[in-house]
Write a protein that binds this DNA or RNA. Structure first.
Lengths: 179, 179
DNA sequence: TCGGTCATGTAATTTGTTACATGATTTA
DNA sequence: TAAATCATGTAACAAATTACATGACCGA
């Protein structure tokens, strides 16, 4: 069983929770995420879904009664197995190391800025991180609503956003110390 | 001034801190990062550096005395300006939203697993997250060593890794509650 | 002298992006 | 009835991955 990519896993998971659903619905779900890591454009989702179908992980059918020709996608038994094993990759150190944060990435190169710019960087980054935290917090479904995985995932996103805000406050303070 | 990509920004920043340096040294630096978000393979770095040179952001020279034909790269004035404006994008909400975590991504689809698997997921993810935290902690340079940006960036990575471990402990606890 | 690391690159392929193109349905 | 949203897709392009290929230098 060939390993699937990160985006393929995500799309398979979304289809699984929404099935039967249109490709468009998958895109909307992806677009609703606070993270903009994937563009979720039609140009990525439609070919990806065709790929999953070729692999036998999803199946699609067009309701003949539907004049719009909507294509409804569902996960196959094989697809569910692939989804489960993708999720279970979480124990792999290589998977746990797949993290990224555009704000943190930029902080590494702070020394390329002069002191005044450094301070402005930290202030602007903190403000943007606070705005993101607000969005990430709103993304957490109220208790007893939505499934448990979605709630825990969104909660994790909020915690990460909080940790980033705390970190940037510390960055700002440490830059102020030095004048 | 056309915007540069995330990897281009990172490579420009690394060249800036190491200059003059070989493409190989840039790759090693990238490879040393706890995050495996980029593979830092020759196939990505060499063409990327050529691209930066075409854009006039770096310049390379081959020491005629060096029999190995090592190519040393440096950042140009234009390149420094591009690096600074890339770093300063931190104030843009779209940039602050560029975050990713492969463990968290998988957690969203926990409901595709049966209760026993869910628990094994949380245990395995926690273990992997703890191992990653250890690596991320080791990546923080000792005080008074390395530049301030590198230290703050690595510290941010460690904080994020800590927050993830705390989150997964909570996930595990909440799955245990339900039996 | 042998293996590891330093060092540079290319080729084929995959994947994702932006932009374009079309049309049905719903809502104000 | 006009605008927004639902819905599907393609085309051109950009970027990154894996795998391959080569050779110099250094230390045991």
């Amino acid at each position: 069983m060939a390993a699937i990519t990160e985006l393929e896993g995500v799309v398979l998971g979304i289809v699984d929770s929404l099935q039967p659903c249109t490709a468009y619905a998958v895109r909307k779900q992806l677009l609703a995420s606070p993270s903009t890591h994937w563009s979720a454009s039609a140009g990525s989702i439609y070919p990806l879904l065709s790929r999953l179908e070729e692999m036998g992980l999803v199946s699609t059918r067009v309701d003949p009664a539907d004049r719009r020709g909507r294509r409804l996608t569902s996960v196959t038994r094989k697809g569910r197995a692939a989804l489960r094993s993708w999720i279970m990759q979480a124990g792999d150190p290589q998977v746990a190391a797949r993290v990224f944060d555009a704000l943190r990435t930029r902080a590494f190169f702070l020394d390329a800025l002069d002191p005044g710019e450094q301070k402005r960087f930290a202030e602007a980054a903190l403000e943007a991180a606070e705005a993101f935290l607000s969005v990430a917090g709103d993304y957490v479904p109220p208790p007893e609503e939505g499934d448990i995985g979605w709630r825990l995932g969104a909660l994790g996103g909020m915690y990460a956003a909080e940790a980033r805000v705390r970190w940037l406050r510390e960055v700002l303070a440490s830059l102020d110390d030095e004048d």
